Simulated scan of single mutants.
Amino acid sequence: PWHMQRCARFHHSFPSTAIEQGADLAVQSTHKVLSSLTQSSMLHMARGLVDADKVSQCLQLLQSSSPSYLLLSSLDAARAQLSENSKSFDEPVAMALETKDQLMVIPGLSVLDLSCFASDFPAIDPLRVTLSASDLHLSGYEADDILEEHQIVSELVGTQAVTFAVNLGTSRQDVQKLVQCAKHLSDKYMSANESRFSKHNYVRSPLDKFSVKLSPREAFFTKKRRVCIEDSLGEICGELICPYPPGIPVLIPGEVVTQDSLSYLINVRDQGMTISGAADGELNSIMVCNL
């Protein structure tokens, strides 16, 4: 995760930085975990590997000639905050690890850790707590809705899990409340769902079978009409439809709507997944090309 690159030099629990691992350039979204303002980030460059002047020329093509000094000063303030207190992340990391240990023993709940991966991962983000209630036959969206009723706000919701972020502003009271609400979730749904089968079919994104009739440019300039999503089978998609997470487009402009892609989109829509790119955020309809 990018935020691990931001924090790597400030706690021994984090892996070496992307630059230290051989990357030429590394983008850090400083605002996500540190204290800089939203939209502020940093671009780090390895010495001797990349032409600094070339990078500067590329940035000048993309950046405004009137930068926000509020954002720039907040980046400097975030840097100063960490440089003045080298132990800033000691407490957040300790709280996150303690919270994971407490959640792991709650019946019906599971927590993501290195043992969950088939391949050898060198490290896992210690400041992210990913919780699954699938053994309670609850999707990530259902679990998130229940926790939100108790003012527990997640960072990311998926079909099978909910991810929470621990950072410099997290208090011990915050993580204790998460554990208490997770226990309540377990107590309420363990007995209620003993005889209930999960109603969710976790289908994989249909990215292996696709057909393209128009280039994205051709599709962009082609006249379009709005159709009910259930009636879009065989039509040429006129917009980019991207469920999040994982943030990978299922349909792009010019691509034919197949049965696999249609079934997948209806499935994730009904589960409450966020859809970006589509004109209709509720995904009851989509834009298709007139041909």
Rank of each mutant, 00 (worst) to 15 (best):
P1G: 14
C7R: 06
H11S: 10
T17L: 13
A23F: 10
A26E: 10
T30G: 03
H31E: 10
H44S: 13
V50I: 06
L62T: 05
L62M: 10
D76K: 13
A78H: 03
Q81G: 14
A94R: 15
M95L: 14
T99I: 09
K100Y: 01
V105S: 02
P107L: 00
L109M: 00
S110Y: 01
V111Y: 00
C116R: 03
S119R: 08
T130W: 01
S134D: 10
L136E: 02
L136F: 03
H137Y: 10
G140E: 00
Y141D: 04
Y141C: 02
A143V: 02
D144Y: 06
V153P: 12
S154C: 12
G158F: 02
T159G: 06
T159H: 01
T163M: 11
A165V: 01
L168C: 01
R172F: 02
D174H: 13
A192R: 15
R204A: 13
R204C: 10
P206L: 07
L207E: 13
D208N: 10
D208M: 07
S211A: 13
K213T: 12
L214Y: 13
S215F: 07
A219I: 01
F220L: 15
K224H: 09
V227H: 05
I229Y: 01
S232A: 15
I236M: 02
E239V: 04
I241F: 08
I241H: 07
P243L: 07
P249V: 03
V250M: 09
V250C: 11
L251E: 01
P253Q: 12
P253D: 11
E255I: 07
S263E: 13
Y264K: 03
I275A: 14
I275M: 15
